[in-house]
Nucleic acid binder design. Sequence first.
DNA 1: AGCGACATGTAATACGTTACATGATTGG
DNA 2: CCAATCATGTAACGTATTACATGTCGCT
Lengths: 186, 186
Amino acid sequence: MALSHALLALLIDEPRSGYDLARRFEGSIGSFWKATHQQIYRELGQMEQKGYLDSETVVQEGRPNKKLYRMTEKGRQYLGDWIGTVSEPCVIREDLLVMTFAGALAVPGALAGELQRRRELHRTELAGYREMEREHYAEPEKLTGPALYGYLALRRGIRYAEEWIAWCDEALAAIAQSEAISAARG
Amino acid sequence: MALSHALLALLIDEPRSGYDLARRFEGSIGSFWKATHQQIYRELGQMEQKGYLDSETVVQEGRPNKKLYRMTEKGRQYLGDWIGTVSEPCVIREDLLVMTFAGALAVPGALAGELQRRRELHRTELAGYREMEREHYAEPEKLTGPALYGYLALRRGIRYAEEWIAWCDEALAAIAQSEAISAARG
DNA sequence: AGCGACATGTAATACGTTACATGATTGG
DNA sequence: CCAATCATGTAACGTATTACATGTCGCT
């Protein structure tokens, strides 16, 4: 149940609602973990039963009430014990790479179009991460404690997006070049 | 059912058995798609029913019989139509990055140890990919057709592994430096 | 009047993982 | 003799996705 660790990690400094947690998975955290609100609400309930969290209902005016979850000492222990445990690289199932692999069967131009779309997607993503880097981590060499670890995770997101963009460029150039060769031949 | 596309992609040039397909997901294909033999056998059965594949049982001496699956014209159509379809980036759930994000709660040294392990893992992976690159793709600039697309997918695996190694190095250096700062302070 | 943000949930279904199950051959 | 490779499958379980469900407020 690895989602539980991800949720606890987001609850380290302050209590949050399920809705709030769901939104955080759409931000920079999304570069290494994704979860929908349905998953989150279910998991939060189970974690509260196990004593990793406790909750408090906050009555709000003009908005629905919300349930704030806070990490318990037991939860902190559970998370701390897990860090450094043997971890496996996550399973990747990347449609676009299956498409690339089978690219020879594609309608001409279809694959290139999708590669371009993907490139743009990661460019947008990267711009967002870069802004977070500028805003929250001005002097990265001096970081210690929680801020450092948040920064390192963000750096992974930045690198991941950059790597995608670079590969898309490489693939698009190679496909264009091979088409030029084929055209010259016949 | 995206697994079906991955299986068809592996069946483009020659018929293969379920066992054979399972092994290919452990090779370079594993950098962008993973599937266990149980999933594969189930999916192959369903795909045959739908007419994307047909099969032939091959009697072998000294070995169990095997069932060779071949892509049908319908299967080829199905795969070709899918390529270039709008695809989403795959969902990532990377334990090691949750650990990094929550690194401040770790037992000292535990996270660094796991980062080092992960680094080695990708170094081994990368060495394997590099060998494939040397053996099968001697002159990448001249590639066309199926060979080009296989090469581009392999390139993604190479880049992915390189990127992991580089990030692990960066993270390890940053953690070491922050510990030095903390030690100097008090 | 309609949309998006806020806020929380249930239910059904699809998908993936783990365990169980079998059995011959080859190499160390 | 033990482990690994070849080869195919079933069953149970856990997790994730998708659809359904409700309701207020503020903005355009």
